[in-house]
Design a protein around this nucleic acid. Sequence first.
RNA 1: GGGGUUGUAGGGUAGUCUGGUCCAUCCUAUAGCGUUCGGGACGCUGUGACCUGAGUUCAAAUCUCAGCAACCCCA
Length: 470
Amino acid sequence: MAKALPKKANFSEWYSEILSMAGIVDVRYPIKGLCVWHPFGLVLKNKVYLILRSLLDVDHQEALFPLLIPETEFMKEAEHIKGFEEEVYWVTKGGTTHLDVPLALRPTSETAIYPMFKLWIRSHADLPLKMYQIVNTFRYETKHTRPLIRVREITSFKEAHTAHATWEAAEKQVYEAVRIYSKFYDRLAIPHIITKRPNWDKFPGADYSIAVDTLMPDGKTLQIGTIHHLGSNFAKTFDITYEDVNGEQQYVHQTCYGISERCIAAVIAIHGDDKGLVFPPEVAPIQVVVIPIPFGEGKDVLEASKRVHKMLSDAGFRVALDDSDERPGAKFYKWEMKGVPLRIEVGPRDLKSNSVTLVRRDTSEKTSIPVPDLVPAINQKLKDIHANLCVRAKKSFDERVVECATLSEVKTAVKKGIAKVNWCGDEQCGIKMEEGTGADVLGELAQTKKGKCPVCGKKTDTVVLMARTY
RNA sequence: GGGGUUGUAGGGUAGUCUGGUCCAUCCUAUAGCGUUCGGGACGCUGUGACCUGAGUUCAAAUCUCAGCAACCCCA
């Protein structure tokens, strides 16, 4: 028997094994925190980012800014530098020549983009300006790195940057970004929760930050998106102004919001099971695999399999025919591990009745489908699979979100998931809550509920989420 | 941030304590051939490794130091 995948209950081990066994990434690249996307993993990534692009392309323009940022620009925004200074890679030499101005490898691109915004924005007619780019960014992570989750090169950072005439218009964009991200994760069947990060945890240089978190199988939360209201902080630093209708110069108000390949980690971690990957059909690199079950010479079966393959391919499905000479059982295991949503078995029994056997990855349900009905049947099954993944993931998520009134309740809840607890809003209390439970305050929920702060006992309506985080 | 452990074929390991027996063991992978094939087949014949550098020594996978990398624990 081939090497077995560890059970998903041992999540850490399962996660790193499946990445390598299924061919998502290879972590053996000889620099800490960097890894290589395998072709199969890259197709997955591209399918996922296609969704993200389609949601943004409605009213954002895609651009591409350079990787290097001169120290002189990077150092302009004081809070921003402080937030990143320990994590920046610096280029200090060109060949053998020492550079007078060191160049930063972007840890994020505000300081690359905003000097250009200054040149581009002249009048209120130029606003709002909404741009995004999908690029690699570098952060010298000192904590333990983990593929797709905590890396030193983020290979696929989608960062959007917008500029608006007023603070209120920028805030409206924040809500719009929340809506876009929420829709994105719905398409991936990833349950998620939106909070406003506490002040001590906001993006360096922002007025406030909103975060999208999901819950991993081991009970830790994963931040899978952030949205920042930058106010006019960067506008003042980079002198980004526009002429308003009265002919006066005003600072712009900005937002930025980002999603990284952590979204891929979430898809893998949340939908996968003991047999391997499970993909929502929309992003599955292969949606249907056709497996011939030969007998004797096996020519008839193979011919029939080829016809099925062509029919599905012509119908627009991403379909593979596995006519290698492994045994059928070995093929079943292999394609299940790779997360293919539907398997079609074509064998002598099927041939006799001009039908095929259709097997779902998520439920293992088997059905016999007459060949003429195959295309509509597959369309329906793929829809059913997506719906089932949504329901299944949501259930597992909801079961692990627990309302708590005391710190000891929080401490118990965060062993398995997320604790909901009241908070008076005082930073000192927030820090005590973190210290007392070993968990982090994710942020405030928009919904309120009457209660008391578990530290000072003050009455409050504010509810925060707490969890152990990645 | 602090502490610890480890590095041997594509992956997992034995050998390291006590230097020579080791052109290195086993499982897996992989190539060829044959028998197989409705849930991880089997036989035969092959392929393939001691992290990098320096040191100690007649002799280093084995001992020492440094680097790089991986993992674990604590804050």
